[in-house]
Design a protein around this nucleic acid. Structure first.
Length: 861
RNA sequence: GCCCGAGUGGCGGAAUUGGUAGACGCGCCGGAUUCAAAAUCCGGUUCUGUCAAAGGAGUGGGGGUUCGAGUCCCCCCUCGGGUACCA
């Protein structure tokens, strides 16, 4: 008895690969290289979910394919292992985060190995390893030296109860997501990275990258470059000017008032005594609102008059200055000239507070809205009248510059990024404070390692946990011998992931983050696969660091990731939900309006379909049918281990690739795994006698027939092309077609079977290794030559032409290959067909369409 | 609101980029094998119609271009993702 037994085969070959170090990256640079990278995982306690293997299988297929195509392949993995969960667990249990992390990594590693991924395990990196974070710190020092890392008081979401700073998404309605404690905006001393200095280069660099359009677009929006003008308005009676940024300087004649953000530094100076109290109250109110609240409550504009006036430099008129929180302190100059005629927000505000509105762009006749933001001729604008928006902008900027009222200016939405966290489990900063001033510790003193602590909670005064390690904190400046205090903040989780792809090139290099020769050979990453949730932050920060290291002369490449692909999320199984009210089924529409509706999960067998609606079978009671995101709380999480136990890793890999296009969101369906499992069974039985376990008698050293070669080469062509385009689902389909065909053969030439096994091997490596061995090879299939596609074998003896009359197929005709391109011959044959003739008789033949080897269309009137 | 992306059988999806819509798989129906079942194998499976054919309809809806449209153009609807007072 020797049926296809994945469990046996898979552990055998996984062991073989490990012992033989089959996937060790070659040390020499004698071949073309290919660097294929996955976004490395955070090793969480719950282990792998089915989303991880999706991207990893895709890259593994490409890695294995490229090896067989003769490339030196770098295909590494590692761990993004700093982070909050291990620290929170430590606070609760006292377990050192290092121990938790190590345990989780071991679990992840064995899960990944059970899937048969061809990672080079000798190149594993771990962001929490001092040998790794030494270089994270080293890069920070470079940033510091270049003036790109600085300390600043930044308002952060401070939660006194939790004693920590929270990210915006961790704050809900002014309360902490965990525990529901109040959160306040509080300025704290933080490390900040000056990413804004690279805004233009980060924008321009996108052009040449082979990335999803939407991802590039998101980065562009995030950087948010806008071109306009800075204009200074003088304040009446105060020797101050207010600078505004505007993208519409052409509308300045319609600027009927100004607005300052509540935090603007001039508010206190210009406010008149009469308005002082009202303004102070308004500022107080604004301070207690979070950014989110300000925008969410934005339906109603609020604001107060400062009592002060400025002069509009274009009109010479006095315009009132208001304070309102719809102007953000953090964008532009924190002040605007308000042009209600051409700005919806200004219109809304002007309407509410009775401020004058002047149109300076002529709206089209049929325009019935309020503010008009489109193209049009300038009106009410003196010397700009009659000009289009673009010309008016140019002219007014010239005028502003001549009269020294302002100048052309560029602004970005992008802000410098907060780089410190008040936490333990992160990279310590290589910074000491001497006489209250920050000072780098010097390269020779790296790494600055994390001290041991007894507990991981922040101090009562809200200082980070590291402040408790007094012996560590209090040190001396090695240069001057003066007493010094170590920085007690740590770096955020994303620090380590900004450069890990570089470390893989030379994981043991002692002279820097990456060996220049290795970087020169391996970089850039040729294919990077990971989730779309990292479209902006990770990918932008990594590009930023990369460019900084380029400027430092550490790197020769300008961009890290040449081609990027996002795998689509895998949702849970389709769920059918019916609704009951007072014990009776009710239709799914309109249930929002009814209270006490009972949700009932339905089995697929009880579901029917009427037109486009899902219904309870044989009724017309509508139900909901939806696949949801996998989540513990929903209880629809699929564990890869279970699938491997039942079907094997090869089936798991194959199924995830067969589900649909890699980039698409798709619902999981365990019963569909049966399909690919059966396919592998058929592959097995194509060659192996299940009774004896030996090769079948049909498997022979015979010359392949023409037909067999055609079947094989159709498969080679399709699979080769499809891997190149990451269309794994159709590649698998092509292999299924081959096997369905080959199973009919009485004689199965070894040469054909071997070629097929090679095609299968990147997808289902374990069964392929096993069959390769049984077909008479003693070495691994991993470096076998990829089969050469030969189009000559595809030539068919006859070609079938569909024959249309007026665009509808009325017959199919067989034409011998030698006549297939003979237009006259084919058309005559087509017209002879009895059914075609019936339709030709209905009128006069006016046109004949002949597309060689495709179609015939006869047009009759 | 704005910016992307997508709508194809009962389900996941395919379609050489303008050339026979529904490949491949799941499910379902029928048959073979079996004492029986599992497993496996063979056949069928968009809807409608028919003993069978011939036909007719059909890729979210409406219009258009074309000999020919799932594919190209215009308008609309629905769903998914991102973003949100960025002046």
């Amino acid at each position: 008895m020797s049926q296809y037994n994945p469990q046996q085969i898979e552990s055998k070959w996984q062991q073989y690969w490990q012992e033989q170090k089959t996937f060790k990256t070659p040390d020499n640079h004698d071949k073309p290289k290919y660097y294929v990278l996955d976004m490395f995982p955070y090793p969480s306690g719950s282990g792998l979910h089915v989303g991880h293997p999706e991207g990893y299988t895709a890259t593994d297929i490409v890695a294995r394919f490229k090896r067989m195509k003769g490339f030196n392949v770098l295909h590494p993995i590692g761990w993004d292992a700093f982070g909050l969960p291990a620290e929170q667990y430590a606070v609760k249990t006292g377990t050192h985060p290092r121990d938790t992390t190590e345990k989780n990594i071991n679990n992840f590693r064995s899960q990944l190995q059970a899937l048969g991924f061809s990672f080079d395990w000798d190149r594993e990196v771990n962001t929490t390893d001092p040998d790794y974070y030494k270089w994270t710190q080293w890069i920070f020092l470079k940033l510091y030296e270049k003036g790109l890392a600085y300390e600043d008081d930044v308002p952060v979401n401070w939660c006194p109860e939790l004693g920590t700073v929270l990210a915006n998404e961790e704050v809900i309605d002014g309360k902490s997501e965990v525990g529901g404690y109040p959160v306040v905006r509080k300025p704290m001393r933080q490390w900040v990275l000056k990413i804004t200095e690279y805004a233009d280069r980060l924008l321009e660099g996108l052009d040449d990258l082979d990335w999803p359009h939407s991802t590039k677009e998101m980065q562009r929006n995030w950087i948010g470059k806008s071109i306009g003008a800075d204009i200074d308005f003088t304040v009446e009676g105060v020797d101050k000017e207010i600078r505004v940024f505007t993208t519409r300087p052409d509308t300045i004649f319609g600027a009927t008032y100004m607005v300052l953000a509540p935090e603007h530094h001039l508010v206190d100076i210009i406010t008149t005594n009469g308005q002082r109290q009202a303004v102070a109250e308004y500022q107080q109110e604004a301070a207690t609102k979070s950014d989110l609240e300000r925008t969410e409550l934005s339906k109603q504009k609020t604001g107060v008059f400062t009592g002060a006036y400025a002069t509009n430099p274009a009109t010479g008129k006095q315009i009132p200055i208001w304070v309102a929180d719809y102007v953000l302190a953090t964008y532009g100059t924190g002040a605007i000239m308000a042009v209600p005629g051409q700005d919806e927000r200004d219109w809304e505000f002007a309407e509410k507070f009775g401020l004058p509105i002047v149109r300076t762009v002529q709206p089209p006749e049929d325009f019935d809205g309020k503010a008009y933001t489109g193209e049009g001729e300038a009106i009410n604008s003196d010397f700009l009248n009659g000009l289009g928006v673009t010309e008016a902008k140019e002219k007014i900027i010239d005028w502003l510059e001549e009269n020294e009222y302002g100048k052309k200016a560029v602004n970005y939405k992008l802000r410098d990024c907060l780089f410190s966290r008040q936490r333990y489990w992160g990279e310590p900063f290589p910074i000491i404070h001497v006489d209250g001033e920050p000072k780098p510790v010097g390269e020779d003193n790296l790494p600055v390692t994390l001290p041991e602590l007894n507990d991981y909670e922040p101090t009562e005064s809200g200082e980070p946990p590291l402040a408790k390690a007094e012996e560590w904190v209090n040190t001396t400046d090695p240069e001057t011998g003066k007493p010094a205090v170590r920085e007690t903040n740590t770096m955020p989780q994303w620090a380590g992931s900004c450069w890990y792809y570089l470390r893989y090139c030379s994981p043991d290099f002692k002279g820097g983050p990456v060996d220049p020769a290795e970087e020169d050979y391996w970089m850039p990453v040729d294919l990077y696969i990971g989730g779309a949730e990292h479209s902006v932050l990770h990918l932008l920060y990594a590009r930023f660091w990369h460019k900084v290291l380029f400027d430092c002369g550490v790197l020769k490449t300008k961009e890290p990731f040449q081609k990027l692909v996002h795998q689509g999320m895998i949702l849970g199984e389709m769920e059918y939900t019916g609704y009951k009210y007072k014990g009776k089924w009710i239709s799914a529409d309109g249930i929002e309006d009814i209270e006490n509706v009972e949700k009932v999960k339905l089995d697929e067998a009880d579901v029917g379909k009427q037109d486009d609606q899902y219904v309870i079978k044989d009724t017309n009671i509508k139900i909901d049918a939806k696949a949801h995101k996998m989540s513990k709380s929903r209880g629809n999480v699929v564990n890869p281990d279970d699938i491997i136990d039942e079907y094997g890793a090869d089936s798991m890999r194959l199924y995830e690739m067969f589900m649909g296009p890699l980039e698409q969101v798709k619902p999981w369906s365990t019963k569909d795994v049966d399909g690919v499992y059966r396919f592998l069974g058929r592959v097995w039985r194509l060659m192996i006698d299940e009774d004896s376990g030996e090769l079948l008698d049909e498997v022979a050293d015979a010359e392949p027939s023409k037909e067999q070669l055609k079947t094989l080469h159709e498969c080679i062509g399709k699979v080769t092309d499809d891997i190149g385009e990451l269309s794994f689902n159709t590649a698998i389909s092509a292999m299924m077609i081959f096997v369905n065909e080959a199973n009919k053969w009485d004689e199965r030439p070894k040469a054909v079977l071997k070629a097929f096994v090679k095609l299968l091997s990147p997808f289902a490596p374990h069964i392929s290794e096993e069959l390769w061995r049984r077909l008479g090879h003693n070495d691994t299939i991993a470096y076998a030559d990829w089969p050469e596609f030969n189009e000559a074998y595809l030539v068919a003896e006859t070609i079938t032409y569909p024959v249309q009359v007026n665009g509808k197929v009325r017959a199919n005709i067989e034409v011998a290959a030698e006549n297939a391109k003979n237009k006259e011959f084919v058309l005559n044959l087509a017209k002879e067909d009895a059914n075609v003739q019936r339709y030709l008789e209905e009128g006069e033949l006016v046109k004949e369409i002949f597309v060689p080897e495709r179609i015939v269309n006869l047009v009759v009137k």
